[in-house]
């Protein structure tokens, strides 16, 4: 089966003979066409739009170069949305990682004990992951309801708070309410990946460490954490990408309010695109989001590389 070119399509005895390579392109073709048409073309169009000023209601459509991007720098609302997005991302991703690690460590104990406990834990832990984000936002909106929501009642009954807190109506609380909802929804994903990573750590390492007199914390710091760093990085990259792009959760929970206090970049871009119909500026906002997400993942990769070099 030597490699032959596409041109070598021959007809013999009425059947078409193609080279392996030609079959390959034939197989991959439909995927290329679909991705090209529905994904790559719109992405290119978005980049092109971000260099234009488009206001269909006023009949304005002109090439403006990088003016939209320059305008971003002077746009206070853009910087506020950046801060909100970063705040949301840092808070929720770190909480998800810590909590997910905690869950994974607890659950890895279960697998030692046996008795089907782990299977039950898997069943429970997969539920928040599987629920539509929109639904989980509505579930939490009801928990946060100030007058008869469960959260205020429980906090009051436990004697922690005196009065009612308007979780979603108070600009200081609203973003944190969104973070808590996101942490609930996505910690299971982190926990599942970390749990799978924990299972790959050879048990002999712990046995050897115990012989050498290492405590639980030492074992965690010297064995578990370094060996799990690649999985931690993957969780960080996946979760950061999603947190930077967060839309569904905030859109349903607060719609960006009160007073833009929870307006993330994607919410701002959505409003710019669909409420004020500024397609050019909205596309520049969205591209800035992509750059932010890409820069953050680059940062993680560099951090990991340094970590690997240090431990080597």
């Amino acid at each position: 089966m030597t490699e032959r070119s596409l041109a070598e399509i021959k007809k013999q005895n009425g059947t078409i003979h193609l080279s392996e390579r030609a079959w390959g392109y034939l197989f991959a073709g439909p995927a290329f066409i679909l991705v090209g048409l529905i994904a790559l073309a719109p992405i290119t169009a978005a980049l092109w739009l971000s260099l234009r000023q488009q206001l269909p209601i006023f009949g304005i459509d002109a090439f403006v170069g990088f003016q939209n991007y320059l305008q971003l720098f002077e746009d206070d609302r853009f910087w506020a949305a950046c801060r909100t997005t970063l705040y949301f991302t840092v808070l929720s991703v770190s909480a998800e990682l810590l909590l997910g690690f905690g869950f994974a460590l607890l659950l890895s104990r279960l697998s030692d004990g046996g008795g089907g406990g782990l299977r039950w834990a898997h069943v429970m832990i997969i539920l928040p992951w599987a629920i539509p984000t929109v639904v989980s936002a509505q579930i939490w909106a009801w928990l946060y309801q100030p007058d008869y929501g469960l959260l205020n009642y429980l906090l009051y009954a436990a004697g922690i708070t005196e009065g009612r807190i308007d979780w979603l109506g108070d600009p200081d609380w609203a973003i944190h309410a969104a973070v808590v909802m996101d942490v609930w929804k996505t910690t299971p994903f982190a926990a599942l990946l970390l749990l799978a990573g924990l299972k790959t750590v050879p048990q002999e390492l712990y046995a050897a460490a115990r012989v050498d007199g290492a405590g639980t914390w030492e074992q965690f710091r010297r064995i578990t954490l370094p060996l799990l760093m690649p999985v931690v990085l993957i969780v960080l990259v996946f979760r950061t990408m999603d947190a930077v792009r967060v839309f569904d959760a905030v859109f349903v929970l607060t719609g960006g309010g009160p007073g833009n206090s929870t307006e993330t970049l994607s919410i701002y871009a959505y409003k710019t695109l669909f409420q004020t119909l500024q397609f050019g500026y909205g596309s520049a906002l969205a591209t800035a989001m992509f750059v932010l997400a890409a820069l953050l993942s680059l940062l993680y990769v560099l951090l990991l590389r340094r970590h690997v070099q240090e431990s080597a």
């Binding site: 991705v35 978005a46 997400a293």
Partner: peptide, 20 residues
Amino acid sequence: VALVTSMFPPIAVISPLYLL
């Protein structure tokens, strides 16, 4: 290309996609 496609924020493609 697959990686970039899945990383690109959906909000960015939504208006060209709508027009398409």
